[in-house]
């Protein structure tokens, strides 16, 4: 199996939302994805990183770890924070559910991650941060 892996760590600042998604897009470009596949992955990464910044760290200081691994034509992305964690993961994944309506969160973050990726795993406990694992196969379209 052909594999390639990269990881990086950055500050939980909203400026880095674009940095994170563009970095992943650049890394997976070696698989020659379609524009749609690229847009899907960028959106999913943006949602996960934004969640860490807004919810994990409450817009305060913190670090986010991001890992991207290619296995043949499968892309695996992991986004990890050491923030406050998620109280009720099932509830958090429901469409339109948000704990921060005052910040105009649409409650669509996890929905987009689910729709745009082929697999989504959320690992979190209150007070113990959050790990998002996502998978997408590149080239599934005819």
């Amino acid at each position: 199996m052909e594999t390639n892996q990269m990881s990086l760590e950055f500050d939980a600042k909203s400026e880095n939302e674009a940095f994170a998604r563009i970095t992943v897009a650049a890394f997976i470009s070696q698989l020659d994805p379609t524009l749609e596949e690229l847009a899907d992955i960028k959106t999913a990464v943006s949602e996960a990183v934004t969640n860490s910044i807004i919810h994990g760290y409450d817009n305060g200081p913190g670090r986010i770890k991001m890992e991207c691994k290619l296995e043949d034509r499968d892309v695996f992305v992991t986004i990890e924070d050491k923030g406050k964690g998620i109280e009720d993961i099932e509830k958090a994944r429901e469409p339109l559910f948000t704990t921060k309506p005052e910040l105009e969160r649409s409650g669509m973050g996890f929905v987009f991650m689910e729709i745009f990726m082929d697999g989504l795993e959320v690992l979190s406990n209150p007070g113990e941060g959050c790990i998002i694992r996502m998978r997408k196969h590149i080239g599934s379209m005819a």
Partner: peptide, 13 residues
């Protein structure tokens, strides 16, 4: 060229 759920939040608000 790019919008995520934050953009949806702006429209809904």
């Amino acid at each position: 060229v790019f919008m995520d759920s934050s953009g949806i939040g702006v429209i809904m608000g």
